[in-house]
Amino acid sequence: MDVLLEKLVKIKSISGEEENISNFIFDYLKDQGLTPIKQDGNVILHIKGNQNKALIFDAHIDTVEAGNVNKWEFPPSGQYSGKIKNGKLYGLGSSDNKSSVAVLMKLCKWVKENNPKWDVWFAFVVKEEVDGYGSKSFIKWLKSQYLEKYDDIQCVVCEPRGCKEVGLGNKGNIFVKIKIQGESGHSAKINEIEKQAILEGVKVIKKLNEIENKLKKKYFDSDLGFTTIAITGFEAVESSPNKIPGTCLISLDIRTIPETHEKIIDIIKDELMNFNLKFEWTYHSTQPVKTSKNSGIVKILKKIDPELKITYSSTNNDSCYFIKENIPTVVFGPGNKEQSHKENEFVNLKNLPICLGIFKKLVKGVEND
Rank of each mutant, 00 (worst) to 15 (best):
Tyr312Gly: 00
Thr228Pro: 09
Val111Leu: 14
Ile190Ala: 06
Val176Thr: 07
Lys171His: 06
Ile153Cys: 13
Phe234Thr: 03
Gln39Trp: 03
Ile205Ala: 11
Gly78Glu: 00
Ala102Asp: 01
Asp96Ala: 03
Gln196Asp: 09
Gly41Pro: 01
Asn242Gln: 04
Asn97Met: 01
Ser295Phe: 01
Ile358His: 11
Gly201Phe: 02
Tyr28Gly: 12
Gly225Glu: 03
Lys71Tyr: 03
Pro245Ala: 12
Glu235Asn: 09
Leu272Tyr: 10
Glu18Ser: 11
Lys203Ile: 00
Lys38Met: 10
Ile44Ser: 12
Gly172Cys: 05
Lys88Leu: 13
Lys218Arg: 15
Lys206His: 00
Val130Gln: 02
Val9Ser: 02
Asn170Trp: 09
Thr282Leu: 01
Lys143Leu: 13
Gly357Tyr: 05
Pro306Asp: 09
Val331Phe: 02
Thr329His: 08
Thr256Cys: 12
Phe234Gln: 11
Asp152Tyr: 12
Glu338Gln: 05
Ile178Met: 05
Leu55Asn: 13
Gly333His: 02
Val166His: 00
Ile257Met: 05
Asp31Thr: 10
Tyr283Thr: 02
Gly33Gln: 14
Ala236Phe: 00
Gly169Trp: 08
Asn348Ser: 13
Ile139His: 13
Lys203Arg: 05
Leu352Gln: 08
Thr232Val: 08
Lys214Glu: 12
Gly182Ala: 07
Ile310Val: 15
Glu307Trp: 09
Ser144His: 12
Gly67Leu: 03
Ile300Thr: 11
Ala230Met: 06
Leu34Asn: 14
Asp96Leu: 02
Gly246Ser: 04
Glu345Asp: 04
Glu129Gln: 03
Ile358Ala: 01
Ile211Glu: 01
Gly246Cys: 04
Asp119Leu: 06
Ala236Val: 00
Leu45Pro: 15
Glu325Thr: 08
Glu65Met: 10
Phe24Tyr: 15
Ser13Glu: 06
Glu212Thr: 05
Lys302Met: 15
Ala236Trp: 04
Phe24Trp: 10
Lys342Pro: 09
Glu113Thr: 03
Phe220Met: 06
Ile304Thr: 04
Thr227Asp: 12
Val43Thr: 15
Ile244Phe: 02
Tyr146Pro: 08
Arg255Met: 08
Glu325Asn: 15
Ser137Lys: 15
Ile264Asp: 05
Asn170Gly: 12
Asn351Leu: 04
Asp151Met: 09
Val101Ser: 12
Phe332Lys: 03
Glu113Ser: 14
Ile250Pro: 07
Lys293Tyr: 01
Glu183Cys: 07
Glu210Asp: 07
Gly167Ser: 07
Glu343Ala: 05
Gln287Tyr: 14
Lys7Asp: 08
Met1Ala: 14
Glu212Trp: 10
Asn70Ser: 13
His186Arg: 02
Leu89His: 00
Asp62Gly: 02
Val125Cys: 07
Ile310Asn: 04
Ser295Ile: 02
Asp119Thr: 03
